[in-house]
């Protein structure tokens, strides 16, 4: 046995909200609208209503930070692409971007004129007691 939805005194009050019978001539007015082609406009009433829209661009901290990171990253990629394609003068080798541009045959792969780092001489550990 489930619990009643409302206590008896509330239910008694709610039951006072009775509905009168359909207005007289309802069927005739319906038929008249049908004959006149006065049909309701297409709407989403057949489908369930959409939930109230959420504020996608709210000012919560995470969303604001996400936007800042996205803008900075987009700016960085745009600048790197411009530098790699020679927009600022001679093309500069930018590791991933230059390779992609060269592969797409948009620019020549620039000389990697920066010196290669010399390998550090490896220190041999001596005198560890073996000899």
């Amino acid at each position: 046995m489930t619990e009643p939805a409302f206590p008896p005194h509330i239910a008694a009050a709610l039951d006072r909200l009775t509905v009168p019978p359909l207005p007289k001539g309802f069927g005739d007015r319906l038929a008249a609208r049908l004959a006149a082609g006065d049909l309701p406009a297409e709407s989403n009433s057949i489908a369930p209503p959409l939930a109230p829209t959420r504020r996608r661009f709210g000012n919560t901290g995470w969303r604001r930070s996400g936007r800042i990171v996205t803008v900075v990253a987009a700016f960085g990629i745009a600048t790197a692409t411009a530098a790699a394609s020679g927009f600022f003068g001679a093309p500069v080798y930018v590791p991933v971007v230059s390779d992609a541009l060269a592969k797409a045959k948009l620019v020549e792969l620039p000389q990697k004129d920066f010196p290669k780092p010399k390998a550090k001489p490896r220190c041999r550990q001596q005198g560890n007691g073996s000899s």
Binding site: L17, V19, P23, F26, D38
Partner: peptide
């Protein structure tokens, strides 16, 4: 009638619902 508390609007809704059935 119970949701809108207005007889004229309730009749509109009832008629629209039946006409949507037609559609």
């Amino acid at each position: 009638y119970r949701m809108l508390n207005d007889a004229a609007e309730a009749e509109d809704v009832a008629q629209d619902a039946l006409l949507r059935l037609w559609q």
